[in-house]
Amino acid sequence: MGRIAHAFENARNENRAALVIYLCAGDPDLSTTADLVVAAAESGADVIELGVPFSDPTADGPAIQRAAERSLAGGTTLAKVLDTVSAIRGRTDVPILLFGYYNPILSYGEQKLVDDAAQSGADGFLVVNLPPEESAGLRGPAVDKGLDFVPLVAPTSNPERIAQAASAATSFIYYVSMTGVTGSKAADLASASERAGALQRELGRPVAIGFGIKTKEDVSTVAPHVDGVVVGSAVVRTIEDAASPDEAVASVRALVSELAQGLGRR
């Protein structure tokens, strides 16, 4: 079992959902990213989605777009993100899922990325614009190396596509709570999490729900239904609003601790 699946199982054994926290690598800088990952893990994050910035993030709303722009302006590259993961591995074992878009991966080379990611201590990949049909070149090598490939299911996915995603999944499935970009206002988290929960029962594997989950209250709305809860834009905004890297780390620590209080199943 990989670290990610293990983290989900741990959370289940504690009768709670797993907390997945998104951070955009290189925002505000890569050294602070390492501190933020450690702080999030110490404050209750079970899995880190480490965003690899891309110039044209078409599935992201303004908050994550701006984070990616800041990161790229600072010179972040996929290679430097992997170096950062290596550095983090000396400090925490929290599972790290590399999260991003396909072009930087294609440009790096899929097999080479899998080799280097495994070497760095990363745990898997979630690629927003790489549906199961296009994923063989990354998923195959990743699975061979014991890294996870996390597929997405959307509210628009039909049963056939859900089955495809389920068979591509190696640890959990990411359920997108709504049609929209990251950071949008959720229309109805309660019913979205019920759908995600039904999906989880049907597929017999963990589902994490993301998009539009910002507060502890949002977390407690969805946590009873699914094995994982993803918070992204709210964390990124906290970092954006911080006056300094130290303040960003402190704010993320506080936010993640608070979000973690909503994970219980009661």
Partner: peptide
């Protein structure tokens, strides 16, 4: 994990080019 092979690539290829690299939400 079930280590099944993913489905065949979608049609709409011109040699190695084309395809569908979009968010799952748009695939249907």
């Amino acid at each position: 994990p079930r280590l099944m092979q993913p489905p065949e690539p979608v049609s709409g290829r011109y040699g190695p080019y084309g395809g569908r690299y979009v968010a799952e939400t748009l695939m249907p």
